[in-house]
Each structure stands twice: as structure tokens, then as C-alpha cells.
């Protein structure tokens, strides 16, 4: 109870009100994030409707295996952070902290894998504006695909990076017993954020890596 009352800000009447407010605030922020990424998805849809062949060709240049592994990594990390939150709610501390570290590590490995992808694309000359050596009738509109690819994955990786830092901070605070079964709001909010990062990627994966694979 002591942590709970210490963490109650003066503008709130009780802890329930505070937790409810924080959760609603976070979900509102997530709606904002959905629209933030939504512009890129809308741009993607419009360009793909206009140039379906170029988008299929562009997608075939991406690394489907690595993309699938990255998706699996993010899904697993999402489960890990949910378990960490569960552990804290049940009064745990050490397991939760390690689960958070695991989540952050998975996020970091995602970034590393993406770095490799970027590097090989650089070598293939697939980066418009920096190094683009594609030829042929689809080379022009294919640049649109790659612009969107870098914008989407770039902004997503930025979010992953922020998430990794956030999770490490949370791991530290969990380890130092700042949270308890009664008070865990910051951890809950960080977990929600991480799930959103995961959800964005769930849509990035088929739109970037899986187009035109059958042909």
C-alpha cells in the first residue's frame, strides 16, 4: 500500500482513477500513433494501386526469410513483455526484470537484422536518393516502393529503438522493486507501446516482404 499512496498524484482521488486515466491516455496516444503510421500505409496503398507490377518487383528484392524471422522475433518479444507485466502483477520481480531484458534484447536483435538488410540493399543499389542502380521499365515506380520501404521501416525502427530504451529503464526499475502488485502503471504503459510497435510490424511484413512472391 505504501508505494501505491506515494505514487498517487495530487490531482487524483484514488489509485483506480489514476490507473484508468493513464491507460486511457496511453490508448489515445496509440490511436495517434496508428494514424502517424497510417499516412505511410495510405501512401503505400495509393502507389501500389497505381503501380502493382513495380511493387511486386520491388518486394521481390527484399529478404523474405530475414523479414519472417524479424516478425517472429517481434511477436515473441511482445509475448515476453506481456509475461513480464503478468509476473509483476503477481508480485514477482527478478523474473519480470529478466523478461524485460529479454524483450529489449529481442528488439535489439531486430534492429541488427534490419541493419544487415539495409546494408545488403545498399550493396545492391536499391536505395533511392543514395545509391540506386536499377534499370528497366519498372525502375522508376519501383523507387516509390523503396522510398516507402525505407520510410516505413525507418520510422518503425525508430520506434523500436525508443522501445528498447524504455524497456531497459523499466527492467532497471522492476529490478529495484519500484513496482508492485498494486502499482505498475509505467510498466503497463511501456508494454502497451511495445505491443503497438509489434502491431505496426504485423502489417509491414505482408505489405513489404510478401508481395508478388508467387509469380
Amino acid at each position: 500500500m505504501s508505494t501505491e499512496s506515494a505514487m498517487l498524484a495530487q490531482q487524483f482521488d484514488d489509485a483506480a482513477q489514476q490507473r484508468e486515466a493513464s491507460a486511457l491516455g496511453m490508448w489515445t496516444f496509440l490511436a495517434t500513433e496508428a494514424l502517424f503510421f497510417g499516412v505511410l500505409f495510405a501512401g503505400y496503398t495509393v502507389c501500389r494501386v497505381r503501380f502493382p507490377a513495380a511493387f511486386a518487383a520491388g518486394s521481390r528484392h527484399t529478404d523474405m526469410l530475414l523479414g519472417t524471422i524479424e516478425t517472429a522475433v517481434l511477436l515473441t518479444s511482445s509475448c515476453a513483455v506481456a509475461l513480464a507485466l503478468r509476473d509483476v502483477q503477481l508480485g514477482g520481480r527478478r523474473v519480470a526484470a529478466w523478461l524485460l531484458v529479454l524483450t529489449a534484447a529481442l528488439g535489439l536483435s531486430f534492429l541488427v537484422m534490419h541493419g544487415f538488410e539495409y546494408y545488403s540493399e545498399y550493396r545492391e543499389g536499391l536505395i533511392p536518393g543514395i545509391r540506386y542502380t536499377q534499370q528497366g521499365p519498372l525502375a522508376g515506380p519501383m523507387q516509390l516502393f523503396f522510398c516507402l520501404y525505407y520510410f516505413i521501416t525507418g520510422f518503425h525502427s525508430l520506434h523500436v529503438g525508443i522501445g528498447v530504451i524504455l524497456l531497459l529503464v523499466m527492467a532497471r526499475r522492476t529490478w529495484r522493486a519500484r513496482f508492485s502488485a498494486q502499482y505498475y502503471t509505467p510498466l503497463e504503459l511501456s508494454a502497451l507501446y511495445w505491443h503497438l510497435v509489434d502491431i505496426v510490424w504485423i502489417f509491414v511484413y505482408p505489405l513489404i516482404y510478401l508481395v508478388g512472391r508467387a509469380g
Binding site: C47, G129, G140, Q143, L144, C147, L148
Partner: peptide, 16 residues
């Protein structure tokens, strides 16, 4: 970067 999805030279759409 000098390229983007609104660039008509690439087939991009300024109306977007």
C-alpha cells in the same frame, strides 16, 4: 534525399 512519393518524375502523385 531528392526522392519521395510525391515526386512526379518517379510517377509519384502531388495530389496525394
Amino acid at each position: 534525399f531528392g526522392v519521395g512519393i510525391f515526386d512526379p518524375a518517379l510517377g509519384g502523385d502531388p495530389v496525394l
